[in-house]
Amino acid sequence: MRAGPGQVLAGRYRLTDHLEALGAFAADERTGDVVRLRALELPAVLIGDQEPDGPGAEPGERLVRRVATVGAAAPRHARLLQGAGAFVEGDLLWTVEERPAGQPLDALLGAGPLPPYRAAEVAADLAGALRALHGAGLAHGNVTAASVLVGEDGAALLGGLLPGVAEEALAEELGGPGGRRRYEVRAALVGPVAERWPLDGGPAGDCWALGVLLHRMATGRAPYPESGVPELVTAVREGRRVPAEACGPLGPLVERLVQSDPALRPTAAEITLELAELLARAPEPVDGPAAAGAPGLPGPRSAGPARRRRAKGAGAAGRSRDRHGGTAKAETVPAEAAGAARPPRIPPALLGPLLVGGVFLLLVLGVAAVVLFAG
């Protein structure tokens, strides 16, 4: 089944655009909110030709229940996008997530790496969301640039929780709880995205993924090769990666986050504190080509809860840098307050007569001096 604009799914989500990479925006007709729908294709082995009440419907329903359980247990946090559950329609498993106005982080990184202190701001927001999740006994498992939304106020919002759960549940449904078959299914679902292949899961795996994402934000690339899943997994296991020196002031934190021993990695709470200290020492902005060439991000990062708006889009161009390498709206200086706009001390109409009088006075003084010295 393939859906298009205007079609209503699950009796409430009216699609507003075409499916792209099995994702689409929709309007929730019950709440009026804009949501993001993501779909996973269910193999025929999970669907079969059974009636909806028959045995063929059971695997899909199990997946929906697993996703719904995590969604219900997820805490509410200002930096965490809320999931609204999952449903099966046709041959697709859909997950639903709120979608305020903003831009995906992966799209913004397409313009190049972020200044280190702007990357630190984004990471601090994500660490706060992870801290809330870990405190609720949950792990995220899908901390990637594609799962992060940068809101209009510059705050970073962590999404992708339910799509990540759906992918892991489908890999286990098709490949079993472990082994080669599950690895192959997961590789096909996830692909060679470095953040998705930690050596360990749980909260420590999320912190490792945040370290990889920090490296990506600061340098424009992952610290591990992403040419294919086998090459990526082998490099992670062997610890072959690009050193973090290029991450600037974030380098020491990145090194500790991506180390192989999970017991030595900082927790989400410790990451939050360390990034706060780093941002407190951030230098004042420096005007120049380096600042002008950095990719734009919407608005200065807000210290309070992110604004949840239903309008689409977020302008990111034509804004000046803030002290951490972020952006802020340019301030307009009134003309009467600028020195160039001050009125002249001498009215223009008097300049001509004053000049003629001055020349005449100099001539009189010159004649008087000649007479005085000649006499």
Rank of each mutant, 00 (worst) to 15 (best):
G313A: 06
G304I: 01
R309A: 01
P295L: 06
A317H: 12
R323Q: 13
R319L: 14
P295W: 07
A317V: 14
P300M: 12
A314C: 09
D287F: 15
A290K: 04
G304C: 00
K312Y: 05
A330N: 02
A291D: 12
D322Y: 08
R301Y: 08
A303H: 10
R308G: 03
S302F: 05
A294N: 04
R321Q: 05
V286T: 11
A311N: 00
H324Y: 15
G325T: 12
P300G: 09
P285W: 08
P300L: 14
D322G: 06
A306S: 09
P295H: 13
G296D: 13
A311K: 01
G299D: 03
A317Y: 07
D322A: 05
G326K: 11
D287I: 10
A290W: 05
G318P: 08
P285Q: 03
G293S: 15
R323I: 11
T327P: 01
A316Q: 09
R308S: 10
L297S: 11
S320F: 02
E331Q: 07
A311R: 04
R319H: 11
G313P: 11
V286L: 09
G315P: 11
P285G: 02
P305N: 07
E331S: 14
P289F: 09
R310C: 00
R319C: 02
A316P: 03
D322H: 01
R323H: 12
G326R: 13
R310S: 05
R310W: 09
A294I: 02
R309G: 03
G325E: 10
A290S: 11
K329M: 02
G293P: 01
R308C: 05
R319K: 05
P289E: 10
R307Q: 07
G299Y: 06
A290P: 04
R308A: 03
R301D: 03
P285S: 07
D322L: 08
R309S: 03
G318D: 10
G299I: 11
A306P: 06
P285I: 05
A303E: 15
A328G: 06
G304S: 00
D287C: 05
G326W: 10
R323E: 09
A317P: 06
L297K: 01
R308F: 11
G296V: 04
E331A: 15
P300Y: 09
A314D: 08
P289W: 15
D322E: 13
G288W: 02
R309C: 03
R308W: 08
A306Q: 01
T327W: 06
H324T: 14
A328H: 12
S320N: 09
G315E: 13
R308I: 02
G318Y: 13
D287L: 12
A290I: 13
R310M: 02
G288P: 08
A314N: 10
E331R: 15
P298L: 01
G325K: 07
